[in-house]
Write a protein that binds this DNA or RNA. Sequence first.
DNA 1: GCCAACGTTGGC
DNA 2: GCCAACGTTGGC
Length: 150
Amino acid sequence: MNYWLFKTEPAEFSIDHLEHMGSTRWDGIRNYQARNLLRDQVTLGDQVLIYHSSCKPTAIVGIAEVISDAYPDPSQFDANSSYFDVKYSKENPRWFCLDIRHKHTFKNSLPLAALKQQPSLKNMVLLKQGRLSIQPVTHAEFALITNLTT
DNA sequence: GCCAACGTTGGC
DNA sequence: GCCAACGTTGGC
């Protein structure tokens, strides 16, 4: 089992939305590094930290679970979607998505500032490569983070 | 709103 | 393939 961190802007889609819906399609990824992780490495049953970005405070807010393999992101074919791109065909999709389900919303979310204070998290991708929207998390990092919230 | 870091585009 | 120009992300 692998561990990941997915970013979302809560004004667009928050963990409360996810909790309410139960599960959702995680789509709209338009970055090659994130796409490659999503398509090639994220697998069924993996655990996902949900991170709220571009808000106050930015924080890890809960856990979700991957419930599908990656498949072509339908929004790239949908002329009505803001993610539509005429260059990509169904025979040759460029972007991928997958489905996740809500597992847990942290009672106490973990702000970025608190993560920065943890010496053992100093190599977290979140702290080193802040812009990546799909990030690998080590088992040790995942375990520490879930401990910090209880 | 600012700006640093990073990603993409396109001319050559 | 290089690199300048431009666009985006996201913390502050």
